[in-house]
């Protein structure tokens, strides 16, 4: 069996096969070295269809689909800059703010059952976490994404355009928030059972009706 193509080769061939696509290799510093391809969301379905069709890859099996929430993180860093102050060049400390994150991400793990190779990891990012939370659905290409994309919609709030049946799957229909987001705050209005932790009890007591309140 031929060894699988490297991610660089795949990227190169992908860029010639799908015109206008923007692909980036996302590095991974952990010992397992599983890198991934970041695909721009407009060309997602075309890239997916090509990956599935391509003779050297034949990624016919979509194993895992998941979402990752990256809230916006502002990191402040002090750097020394040379600048002219009153005509004299001085070294001045400046605070530089770098913003990272601020989007939701869908990660797809692809394997080939035909050629018994894998994994190729592709990911797509939304514009932001509120209004532009749309991504193209890959369910028309791999049906195994059907329930898993529904789950991401339910728990992360990514809207998959082109999904045949996008409804909540684990939470109930009237539920409003998306619990797997990092900034989700659990409501404290359901019933708590007494535990040794007093704070939990106090939280529950606030919601007892006055005639029941102990």
């Amino acid at each position: 069996m031929m060894p699988m193509q490297t991610l660089e080769e795949i990227k190169k061939r992908l860029e010639s096969a799908v015109p206008g696509v923007c692909v980036e290799i996302v590095s991974n510093d952990s010992p397992c070295q599983q890198r991934s391809l970041l695909v721009d969301r407009d060309h997602g379905p075309q890239v997916a269809a090509w990956l599935r069709r391509d003779d050297a890859l034949r990624l016919d099996y979509l194993s895992n689909v998941t979402g990752v929430d990256w809230p916006e993180v502002v990191t402040k860093q002090k750097i020394k800059v040379k600048r002219k102050v009153d005509g004299v060049e001085k070294e001045v400390e400046e605070v530089v703010q770098t913003r990272s994150g601020g989007y939701l991400e869908a990660v797809y793990h692809l394997y080939s059952m035909e050629l018994k190779q894998g994994a190729v990891v592709i990911r797509m990012r939304t514009g932001d976490r509120d209004q532009q939370n749309k991504l193209p659905s890959l369910t028309p290409i791999w049906r195994s994404a059907e329930l898993q994309e529904r789950e991401i919609y339910d728990l992360f709030g990514i809207v998959f355009e082109g999904h045949p049946d996008l409804r909540r799957i684990l939470m109930w229909d009237g539920f409003e928030a998306h619990p797997m987001r990092r900034d989700y705050v659990e409501p404290d209005d359901y019933e708590y059972e007494p535990t040794p932790h007093d704070s939990v009890l106090a939280k529950a007591k606030a919601h007892y009706p006055p005639e029941v309140a102990p």
């Binding site: 991974n28 510093d29 952990s30 010992p31 397992c32 599983q34 194993s63 895992n64 793990h109 994994a119 990891v121």
Partner: peptide
């Protein structure tokens, strides 16, 4: 505390 990164194993 593992190093930053990601991993999928099955």
């Amino acid at each position: 505390k593992p190093k930053p990164g990601e991993c999928y194993e099955r």
